[in-house]
Design a protein around this nucleic acid. Structure first.
Length: 448
RNA sequence: GGCCCGUUCGUCUAGUGGUUAGGACAUCUGGUUUUCAUCCAGGCAACAGGAGUUCGAUUCUCCUACGGGCUACCA
């Protein structure tokens, strides 16, 4: 009888950012953990700022995140007749009044005057003038405000359209919302909405206000400090599971546990607790979660989500992924850190050459190249033996020859073990790159 | 300014009227690694301040400070 039903109600005036995504996750989990439904409602009554493309982006973002809403998406723009109906009812029963839309205090004079409606007037809701409005918040506990603090707020604009605080109540009513889980920027609206429910003589839903997310500098999250859209995290190479897990842990906890997969979340959400205070976003920790989920994936799964032409399912591409996976904490790093496995370095950082190629580097590398050419079994251990021997013979440190070799083959100073890289690349490609590199640094020397 | 809410390591947090205040991320130090990363071991680090209540408060109450939110014919 009292089925759990929640909703997430964004206004399509921008992309879905992580704060909204987290609020939605909590509303969704609250319902799903109790066999309930969670609806998506697009609050597009602000015709100026609402855009269809944002609606599409929001829906896409949730699809990616793996948050699936129930029933049809509700668009407030479709419900204007219904809002007018309720406003008329409120007017008829004396719970609202027509006024000139000046400041709330002067408008109050029209409370009982029955002004004629025209295209200049607005409709205000009559707030109780005495007593308190109190409610029990699921996350914050009891919250109370004196009614004298509350203004008679506008429910119908001069153009005849209904405003937010009225639409919300009507839609929550019509959708049979049992629990309103939303951001705590709405606590003050709750007092207004509760009084509308009362005027309508309807049951008031249970409210739960989750605190906001703050940027890394502790300030309100905005585009300037890291309030990226959900889709942008996807672009950064973050896995949806990781973002979801991180967002959950930002404000929700169950003992000392950190890892919660999609199923774990639903199963345990009721056993955990929601924090009352705002939390600061940390990219470092998100990345840690991302690495964790990356580690759980098989090579085939990785190949599937990376979506790079070079990762074609061949043994070679699998080997590449296997050898670099420890050093990657985002999907994108699999792409940017493996290019040298698929094509010869085109150019080298001049500063790199300058720093690591000294006078005798050419001779050292030439010697090494000669030794590698005559190596019959092209395997890591044998390649390592060759390098070790050359290092020993020349009485130099490994870095004197290993680093230039790494640069020659990969064009960078960090890579997996260079002997392993040689093996994976194969003898032919290794020698080819070495040859090209030798020519390069020889010219470099004659240029000087 | 008014109103509402909040405050445990740098960050996310666990926890209790009596605890060596726990974990995770970050950081630092070792070990592994010829580089980087991974991995392993260890270290540093917190109850905002002041009054009460109490035999005893991080935990309960009040005040202050600080932080966040709201204060639209936006949502």
């Amino acid at each position: 009888m009292s089925a759990i039903r929640t909703r997430f109600a964004p206004s399509p005036t921008g992309y879905l950012h992580i704060g909204g995504a987290r609020t939605a996750l909590f509303a969704w989990l609250f319902a799903k953990s109790q066999n309930g439904d969670c609806l998506l409602r697009i609050e597009d009554t602000d015709k100026e700022r609402s855009k269809d493309e944002y609606t599409a982006e929001i829906i896409e973002s949730f699809k990616w995140l793996g948050v699936e809403f129930d029933n049809e998406v509700v668009y407030q723009s479709n419900n204007s007749d219904r809002y007018s109906e309720i406003i008329d009812q409120l007017l008829d029963q004396g719970s609202a009044y027509i006024c000139k839309g000046e400041d709330p205090e002067t408008d109050k004079e029209y409370r009982d005057q029955n002004l004629p409606r025209d295209n200049k007037t607005v409709v205000r809701f009559k707030m109780p003038e005495e007593g308190n409005t109190v409610y029990e918040d699921i996350v914050k506990g009891q919250i109370e405000v004196a009614n004298e603090q509350l203004d008679d707020f506008i429910i119908e604009r001069s153009d005849g359209s209904a405003t937010y605080n009225l639409c919300v109540v009507v839609d929550d009513l019509d959708s049979n919302i049992s629990h309103v889980i939303r951001g705590d920027d709405h606590v003050n609206n709750t007092f207004k909405q509760i009084n509308v429910f009362k005027a309508l003589n309807k049951n008031i839903p249970t409210y739960g206000h989750v605190p906001m997310i703050l940027g890394e500098d502790g300030k309100r999250l905005s585009k300037r400090h890291g309030a990226l859209g959900v889709r942008e995290y996807a672009g950064l190479g973050i896995l949806p599971e990781a973002l979801k897990n991180y967002l959950l842990r930002l404000g929700w906890s169950m003992g000392n546990d950190e890892i919660f997969t999609g199923e774990d979340m639903k199963k345990n959400f009721q056993s955990g607790i929601l924090n009352k205070s705002p939390a600061i976003f940390s990219m470092d920790k998100l990345l840690w979660f991302n690495k964790y989920y990356l580690d759980q994936m098989s090579i085939d799964q990785l190949m599937d989500v990376i979506k790079l032409k070079d990762f074609d399912g061949s043994e070679y591409s699998k080997t590449v992924i296997e050898t670099v996976r420890d050093r990657c904490s985002t999907l994108n790093e699999f792409i940017t850190d493996t290019d040298y496995f698929f094509k010869d370095p085109e150019d080298y950082e001049p500063s790199l050459l300058l720093k690591h190629c000294k006078d005798n580097t050419f001779n050292h590398l030439s010697l090494l190249k000669g030794q590698l050419e005559s190596l019959e079994i092209w395997e890591q251990t044998h390649i390592k033996e060759v390098i070790d021997r050359v290092v020993l013979d020349l009485e130099i440190g490994f870095g004197k020859i290993g680093l230039p070799l790494r640069i020659a083959l990969t064009s960078r100073v960090n890579s997996p073990s260079i002997d392993l890289v040689c093996e994976i690349l194969g003898k032919e490609i290794t020698l080819r790159r070495l040859e090209k590199f030798l020519t390069k640094i020889q010219n470099l020397k004659t240029d000087q």
